[in-house]
Design a protein around this nucleic acid. Structure first.
Lengths: 227, 227
DNA sequence: AACATACGCTTACGGTGTAAGTTTATCAAT
DNA sequence: ATTGATAAACTTACACCGTAAGCGTATGTT
């Protein structure tokens, strides 16, 4: 009889950092990040809260680890596509991940030093610009501009008080009914003539801005001399 | 003898929502948002924690109120400037406010319905696009793209593990020393040949991206027919 | 002067992150 | 297989959190 399996006949496998992080991510997705406490995470893993501290140095470390794990979920820019296609796909993937894990965006401005998944991701994005003919200085510009847009969009999308087209319509109607048109004429116009149009979906704005930025970056690259 | 002044010879003036919000903003600036508790805010106002609930319905309401108050700190787009200048100044002002109150960015994705300061601000931005010759649909695109960039940039800036040029140099040197160059070649290049250059300052990237977006939006406006 | 209301206070409860110390499980070397 | 070392899970405890409930007093109105 194998000794290793007999030792833990009932309880789950031994804890490790990966299981802790993955369960934490799942709990944050299912119940919201504000409900994720060390005690609840312990319950989710069949373990006491303090046991987690053997694999995570404190809650901040836990949250940073969750973020770094998410970076590995993002599709890296492909070597096979041209730079614009590769970065477009990557940017869509970033947004998808942030939609799947809406709590993540707010944790990414902690100013702590990045983990290996984060570094790998950034390295590949930088490389895609460089191999796409961007000078080093222009790569720095482009990296900042593109990611500012992508993460900023995800943030705006989450901040909206509606998700679906129906909710948007309800919200817009409520605002039209309650807000004084004289005070907010342009919001009034936007709600009445744009948001309430059938087929309106804020999510469509992502592509517009993404192409706007990518095309503008291409022009900047071409205006520069070679590296 | 004026009755009103004699009633409170020692204690501070009576509490009101505005004083609560302003003190909360000051405390968040000085000690960090994570240190802002109802009890500490009470101390800062010379009052017990529970007294705050007469002016704020709960902590979430407090935080939303703080955000809305900050929107009034942002310089509204001027009617006198052309649209691009007006929105450029406004965008710079947004970034300034978010630098002054670094905790605010993370609170703005709560998905709650916006306060009057927020609505006023958005209305004026929309109006600037409309009066600048943007169609309604293009205004919606432009609003989303511009604010995604501006708020996203502020977020990226805060997420960086360094603030000043010196800190950036220290950080870059540390990364060069610790990271395997073979694994992160492009990060390596960026740190060694760009960040470590004298005069490097990430803050300079803001203007590049801002002009990139504004110029690209102008193009899009011109490509469209009239509204 | 009397009342109604608004507001500040006290107390209490269930929750949080985590420091400190103890017990148990695992693995390496004999 | 036994021992000893190490890693990891547990128990207890503490200071702090948001806020519900209820009380007393100050304020403003009649």
């Amino acid at each position: 009889m194998p000794a290793k399996s007999v030792q833990r006949p009932e309880g789950r496998a031994r804890l490790n950092r990966k299981r802790v992080l993955q369960t934490a991510i799942r709990l944050a997705d299912e119940e919201g990040i504000e409900k994720l406490s060390m005690r609840r995470l312990g319950v989710g893993l069949g373990v006491e809260a303090m046991s987690l501290y053997n694999h995570v140095s404190n809650k901040e470390d836990l949250l940073n680890g969750m973020i770094d794990a998410l970076y590995s979920e993002i599709e890296l820019p492909s070597h096979d596509d041209d730079w614009k296609t590769a970065l477009r796909k990557r940017s869509v993937s970033v947004r998808d991940v942030l939609l799947r894990h809406p709590w993540a965006n707010g944790l990414m401005d902690s100013g702590t030093s990045p983990g290996p998944g984060t570094l790998r991701h950034h390295d590949r994005v930088l490389g895609t610009f460089r191999n796409g003919g961007f000078s080093l200085a222009m790569t720095a510009h482009a990296f900042s501009a593109l990611d500012s847009y992508v993460y900023g969009y995800a943030k705006q999308e989450k901040a909206l008080p509606f998700d679906t087209e129906e909710q948007a319509a309800v919200m817009a109607s409520a605002m039209l009914a309650q807000l004084p048109a004289s005070e907010y004429p342009y919001l009034y116009e936007l709600m009445g003539k744009h948001v309430l149009r059938p087929g309106y979906n804020y999510a469509d704005e992502f592509s517009f801005g993404l192409d706007l930025v990518l095309d503008a970056l291409e022009r900047e690259r071409d205006l520069e001399g070679a590296d």
